[in-house]
């Protein structure tokens, strides 16, 4: 009898696995009482391991906020930029909050929510700099990593500026820190990281060139879940919560007019 029962149970399990589409639309997550969210572990300050090997970062905070708003438990899974889309597409996780930018190619595989945060690139300088934009630059020298988005943007905006180009962001940062250039065009997360390591030479933004938004990833075929995440993002953008969290982890708040999808 026991043997029969276990055979039936096994058969039932197998058929479940084969037939039931492992869709995790909103109601399924609520029924399960757990939301499975993929976060990065190697993309500071979005997701990384702190001194005691705990996962921390902006994306982890956002994931916690999502679980709280859903009223369910949070199960974090570490994803990389290479595997995060396949994790979603195969329904091994319900959502990704992984510093992911939306592209038409990626949108063929998964859905994207409205952006919850954004990296920015721009011109940075000492906190006591009197510059407020590229317009009154004068003959100050700017360091930048050659061929990056910030290099292209900077050259377009200030073609006559005294720009020193280096091989990469690290060398450009060295040039700034050793005083070889007076200003640095880079990403805000790099400027923030430099400021944290050397608070005496903290960098402040002078002009932001452009934002590169990050989105929550949702598996295809979950319209309720996608709609819910959009509402979640809208609500927390509107009350300033996401901007505060972005400022805490990335160094600058979100712009006032933040794009939406």
């Amino acid at each position: 009898m026991m043997k029969h029962l276990s055979t039936i149970a096994c058969a039932a399990l197998v058929s479940l696995a084969v037939t039931a589409p492992a869709k995790a639309d909103l109601q399924d997550i609520l029924d399960a009482g757990t939301v499975r969210i993929g976060v990065p572990a190697d993309v500071p300050p979005f997701g990384f391991l702190d001194g005691s090997n705990q996962q921390v970062g902006l994306d982890i905070e956002v994931a916690k906020l999502i679980a709280e708003a859903l009223g369910v438990d949070l199960e974090l899974t570490t994803v990389t930029s290479a595997n995060r889309i396949s994790y979603l597409a195969t329904n091994r996780i319900d959502l990704t909050v992984a510093a992911m930018g939306a592209t038409p190619e990626r949108a063929l595989q998964i859905d994207f929510s409205s952006p919850y945060s954004a990296l920015s690139i721009g011109l940075f300088g000492p906190e006591d700099s009197e510059l407020s934009s590229l317009a009154d630059l004068g003959d100050q020298t700017i360091g930048v990593a050659r061929g990056t988005t910030q290099d292209i943007e900077l050259t377009e905006r200030a073609p006559d500026a005294n720009i020193q180009r280096y091989d990469d962001d690290a060398t450009a940062a060295s040039a700034y820190l050793s005083g070889q250039v007076e200003l640095l065009a880079t990403a805000n997360i790099i400027a923030n990281d430099l400021s944290k390591r050397d608070p005496d030479n903290a960098l402040a933004p002078i002009e932001i060139f452009r934002y590169s938004p990050t989105h929550v990833g949702v598996p295809k075929g979950n319209p309720d879940l996608l709609r819910w995440v959009d509402t979640f993002v809208f609500y927390n953008l509107n009350n300033g919560r996401l901007s505060e969290m972005t400022e805490e982890w990335l160094g600058q708040p979100l712009p006032e007019r933040f794009p939406s999808m």
Binding site: R146, G147, Q164, R165, Y166, D167, T171
Partner: peptide, 18 residues
């Protein structure tokens, strides 16, 4: 070119990046 002197190779890398 690695320290940012605009000599021939530095200019080549610049043109390549554009």
């Amino acid at each position: 070119s690695t320290i940012g002197a605009n000599e021939l190779f530095h200019q080549a890398s610049f043109i390549d990046s554009r």
